[in-house]
Nucleic acid binder design. Sequence first.
DNA 1: CTGAAAGCGCTTACAG
DNA 2: CTGAAAGCGCTTACAG
Lengths: 352, 352
Amino acid sequence: MEASIKNVARVAGVSITTVSHTLSGKRHVSAELATRVREAMETLGYTPSRSARNLALGKTQIIGLLVPDIGNAFFAELAKGVERVASGRGYNVIIGNTGFDRSRGLMYLEMIRARAVDGVVYASGSPFTDIEISGGTNNIPLVLVDGEVAGSHAPLVASQNLEGGRLAAEHLLGLGHRSALLLSAPSELATGADRVTGFVEAWRAGGGRAVQNGQGGFTAEGGQAAIRHHMGEILQGSVTAIFAVNDEMAIGALRELRAQGISVPDQVSVMGFDDIRSASDVHPSLTTIRQDVSLLGERAAEILLTLLADGDETVEGESVPVELIVRESTSPVDPRTSPHAMVDAGQKGQGR
Amino acid sequence: MEASIKNVARVAGVSITTVSHTLSGKRHVSAELATRVREAMETLGYTPSRSARNLALGKTQIIGLLVPDIGNAFFAELAKGVERVASGRGYNVIIGNTGFDRSRGLMYLEMIRARAVDGVVYASGSPFTDIEISGGTNNIPLVLVDGEVAGSHAPLVASQNLEGGRLAAEHLLGLGHRSALLLSAPSELATGADRVTGFVEAWRAGGGRAVQNGQGGFTAEGGQAAIRHHMGEILQGSVTAIFAVNDEMAIGALRELRAQGISVPDQVSVMGFDDIRSASDVHPSLTTIRQDVSLLGERAAEILLTLLADGDETVEGESVPVELIVRESTSPVDPRTSPHAMVDAGQKGQGR
DNA sequence: CTGAAAGCGCTTACAG
DNA sequence: CTGAAAGCGCTTACAG
């Protein structure tokens, strides 16, 4: 005898209504019946079918997490945060790895349209337009993480990237640096753009002068290439500090600097952003701006679940604090090697 | 008018049977009706409800992936592999993060019992006994990854850890090393135990002598502590090579060696296992045994899906090849600093 | 405090 | 080639 609600009711000698209510607690069941029901469930080894429940209630208790690459530490940590609060509230999370691939993304959109999930946390980087993500999606509750989707009104949860850029600039200024090389990334990515903006504003305000570098592309290789390209300024001491808008690029920079025989931080200070795992493993360990990625995921999930609970309620996004982590890769500028020159290499006229 | 199959049928002027069959292709539908159905679906914006389908078919097209820590790069990469093949075959994956926590694990067991998933990929480290995992689980198809569960007959997918240990030993022997320090981990973890066994066997066969060290616990801190404990042997050259059964410990070892002013690989060679991201970022970059973790996930998912397709078929587990990655942290033993002494510090009598 | 029955939206055996 | 209807296993409005 399979363990369906019908059989439990039969064994307990009650209606399925009563079985359902002793489980849900949505209406009172006399102690005697409740006991009989529980015993019947026990002997049958009954666990209610999620599928049946889903159909009856029109929801799945599942949220989708769409990321471009779950193998990437950032998104893995994000997933951890999302899973933590979701599971704590009785939700499961389906992970949708788009791999930056449109067709895989569309597959997950179809899953959303099929109401396989009650809501979605959508991490930046996936290849959708606003129309697809909100229009094609049955008005399913949506929370954005890390980056905007053009034109979307969905709440956004992101780190205080602007503030992070500012912290980086102030740290370097405080060490006496005035000439910095900025390793940025394609401006399409708002995440990086905010970090640049925050840095440049604070840097200017503090009397520094930034050298922009469009290359870098968020990769270690990009960081290496950028350093190679600016070797001249570094050697002549007209750049005493390097700020990369992510740790990957900063680590690439460290690698190239070592290869070129430049000592960090003695000859040049290097900062990153993110505080990925490697940041503390490299030598010298990397001074960086830490973002609390799993908190990002937790907050996103909480907002989404609030949305699911309150229906129409309008919910605000939020920004998650960042933190300066000082390690070995930055030190006070050495007055002898630094002529405090004002260099503006690379990007012609990009400095506003 | 909501987009249900009933409304599509009404608009197209056919039965819901016909709507269902034009979608599934399980029986022929005349071109004319098929067209009318498709048009109706189009105008209504119809996507079939997954919940209804699940209930009717008694399956969910979802597999569960149970891991102890999705934030950990190993499991994140595993998830990537699992997701890739699952999504390629029309399955979604729910990620279950147990956090090494029994109660969270039990919550996911309950999800399995509720038939919220059709099968599960179970990565080592979660806190279950065999009885719980197979008995309490509705006979749901199960594939184990990375480690056995005591007494379970479920197929296991794991890296060739034994072979990996052997490769490490042979690499070091080939460089002339004969006295090694082995950074192992608690023997409960079969993963590490196989690596040790493979190493020790090949090492002995090649004329080497192993120094065991029970500490390490798979963490960088453990690796550091172990080095501190064996500083004497390293300084006097009676240990010329160190093999850690994972990269974390190897990186901890590198850190401590640097702190103590020992040059790697000049004074001592260091090897790890896994080839985690940091392995190539540290300096000197780490010679290690790479395991293809995302392939591990792919194979596990494929086996699980085969199990789901073929029902009763018995399926074998498999082992995934590993690869020696030579980087900067190992070099030929320096005959001057190496008296080829046979040291057996630490574990009294543990060397068989 | 309890039960009979409708309904959630599909799939499919049965009949034609 | 097509349709009417039962069934998947729950939840819940309605009635008592």
